[in-house]
Each structure stands twice: as C-alpha cells, then as structure tokens.
C-alpha cells in the first residue's frame, strides 16, 4: 500500500472496511473507562488523546500535504485562548467559546498559510516561518493584558455540562475520544476526496500537479485551514480540562513537537498514524518516568530516541513499517496463488 492510502482498495469498495476499522478502534477505546477507574490512568489517556488530536491536525497538512509545520502551537494556543478569554472576560457560553476557538485557529491558519504559501515558502523555510509565527504569538500573549499576560488565564470551576466541564474524568475522556473519532473520519474522507488526491499530488510534485490543473496554493491553504482547525480543537479542549492557560502552554514548543511527533512516529499520511503514534510515544514516556523516577525532561529524551529509531528504521512510521512487514510475511507464507494485496487486507 502506498503512503497516501488512496489505493486500488479504495476503488473496489474497501473504503467501508476502513470506516469499520475506525468504529472498532473508537469502540475499544471507549470501553476503557468501564474497566479502568484510576484517575491517573484516565489522565494519562486524556493527555494521549490530546496529543493524538493535535497530531491528526498536523497530519492533514504535513502528512498528506507534505508541508512540515514546526509551529502548530499557533493554532493550539489560539484555540485555547479564544475559548478561555470569551468565557472569562465576555461571559460567553463555554460551548460557543469552544466553537469560536476552533474558528479562531482556522483563521490564524488561513493568515499564516496565505502569507507563506503566497510567498512560495516550502520545506525548511515553511517550517521555520511557522515556528517564528508561533514564537511571536507566544511573546505577544505573554505581555498583552487580554491573555492575562504572565499570570495566565484561569477559567472558573463550574462542573456542569452547559459549562463544558464534567465531574467525572471518564466523561472528559469520552469527549476527547469523540473529537479524535471525528478527526479520524475527516481524515478518511479527505483521503478519498478530490481535495485529498490533489493534496497528495502537491506533496509528491508541485509542478506536475500544476500541469494537471491543481491550484497548488488553494489546495495548500485548504489543508492549512483544516489542519489548524483540528489542532485548535485540541487547544479548546485543553482549557476546559485543565481550566488554565498561559503563554508557555498555549504557544509553547511542546505542543508543536507533540503535534508533529505523533504522526511521524505513527505514520505520516495515514489515517491512524497520529493516534497510534500518540499511544506509543506517551506510553514510552510514562514508562520511562515510572522506571527512573520523575526525572524532569526524561520523556523528551525518550521521544528523541524513538524519533531517531523510527526515522532510521521505518521512515514511514510504525503504521507504514507494519504494513510493509505484513506484506512481507504475506508474501512468504501465503500460497503463491493469492496476491499479496489481498492477503494483506484479509
């Protein structure tokens, strides 16, 4: 299977199979709080799904579009701040604030994308410019009064569904899981749409795409807006869950790194890559902390090691690596009469 996932399988109706796998994965994850009641574990899982959601956003632009952003914090932070500020300073309902936060992230995506794609920035130049935008936003947010400047913004505790706050961690977990599920479905739909096909073409070869009638700038911009909106949604959720945001959290490099690390580890340009990557990376990080005591920054060391190993050994991420391995096994052990394509899917 190629990296884009838009293979023959899609052509022959296996798309329903992919949809079913989304349902199964989400159903299994949804059952976890029924078995596990430990708040520590649920906290860990919420943090994992948060990273997965931020990564799902990054994956649309970076994985499918090949535009590697180092500054997805710009969208995460905007989503978080818009949600928090509207509630705290303007008394807007939390759900409306949440929606406005997503829209705000999309607008920031459109602005950054419009400026950088129109100037023809690609590759490492694009990565650096996105990083610069996120840093500028971080510095601005750390001094302007409306964001609470250095003190940050605290959202008032109000444990009611209408305030988008829940007493039980399990409910929060289901909410973030539902958001991840929506992002999986969106990714799946993008993959099978004309927009997705064009986006992958832009990733593979811009000039060839232009010659075939693809409006490269509009396609990139569309991917940027969608990508920003999904990552902003993660920021909105962060605020409702932790009820606090400051510039270092909102626009810090930590979230830019999580957003790109999860899909790169899991598999860039695949539907499940970011979710899978988040589960692996977060488990390893927590595992290392448990083993070595709570040494600060140890999880980052583990992230670094995993990243080096994955890029070195499975450049298409764990999903890509597994697909290749499965195909290899299929070829070895299946009778020659069954084509590897089918063996792989069966």
């Amino acid at each position: 299977m190629t990296r884009s996932g838009m293979t023959k399988r899609g052509a022959t109706g296996h798309g329903i199979g992919r949809f079913a796998s989304i349902v199964i994965v989400v159903a299994v994850l949804a059952a976890v709080p029924l078995v596990v009641h430990s708040n520590v574990t649920l906290n860990f899982l919420v943090a994992t799904l948060l990273a997965a959601l931020a990564g799902q956003g990054w994956n649309i632009l970076g994985g499918y579009g090949g535009q590697y952003s180092f500054g997805h914090a710009a969208f995460f932070g905007t989503g978080a701040y818009v949600t928090a500020i509207l509630q705290v300073r303007y008394g807007v309902n939390a759900w409306a604030g949440f929606a406005a936060g997503i829209a705000g992230g999309a607008v920031v995506g459109a602005v950054i994308g419009g400026l950088s794609f129109r100037s023809g920035l690609r590759g490492s130049y694009f990565a650096l410019v996105t990083l610069a935008f996120a840093e500028v936003l971080r510095i601005v947010a750390s001094v302007t009064p409306i964001t609470g400047a250095g003190v940050g913004t605290l959202v008032k505790l109000d444990l009611h569904a209408r305030a988008f706050q829940f007493e039980s961690r399990a409910v929060f977990y289901w909410v973030i899981l539902a958001m991840v599920a929506v992002s999986l479905v969106i990714t799946h739909l993008v993959e099978r749409s004309r927009f997705g096909v064009w986006l992958v073409a832009v990733r593979e070869n811009e000039d060839a795409a232009r010659a075939l009638g693809v409006d490269v700038i509009m396609v990139k911009l569309g991917a940027m807006v969608l990508s920003a909106a999904i990552t902003a949604a993660a920021g909105c959720f962060y605020v409702q869950y932790f009820l606090f945001i400051d510039s270092g959290i909102a626009y810090g490099t930590w979230i830019s790194i999580e957003a790109l690390l999860t899909p790169i580890i899991g598999g860039v340009g695949t539907v499940f890559g970011p979710l899978f990557g988040a589960l692996v990376v977060k488990s390893l990080g927590e595992g290392a902390k448990l083993l070595a005591g709570d040494a600060p920054g140890l999880d980052l060391v583990v992230y670094g090691i995993v990243l080096v190993l994955v890029i070195g050994m499975a450049p298409r991420g764990l999903v890509g690596g597994l697909t290749a391995a499965r195909r290899w096994c299929g070829r070895r052990w299946r009778p020659a009469s069954i084509p590897a394509e089918e063996a792989e899917h069966g």
Binding site: T2, R3, S4, M6, T7, K8, A11, V197, W198, V200, A201, R203, E204, N205, A208, A209, L212, V214
Partner: peptide
C-alpha cells in the same frame, strides 16, 4: 508522483 501507484498518478 513517485510515492503513488500508476492508477493514483493518472487519477490526479
């Protein structure tokens, strides 16, 4: 588009 199959290339 080297990362894609022949069919996907033409599909674009």
């Amino acid at each position: 588009f080297v990362g894609l199959s022949v069919r996907e290339n033409i599909l674009v």
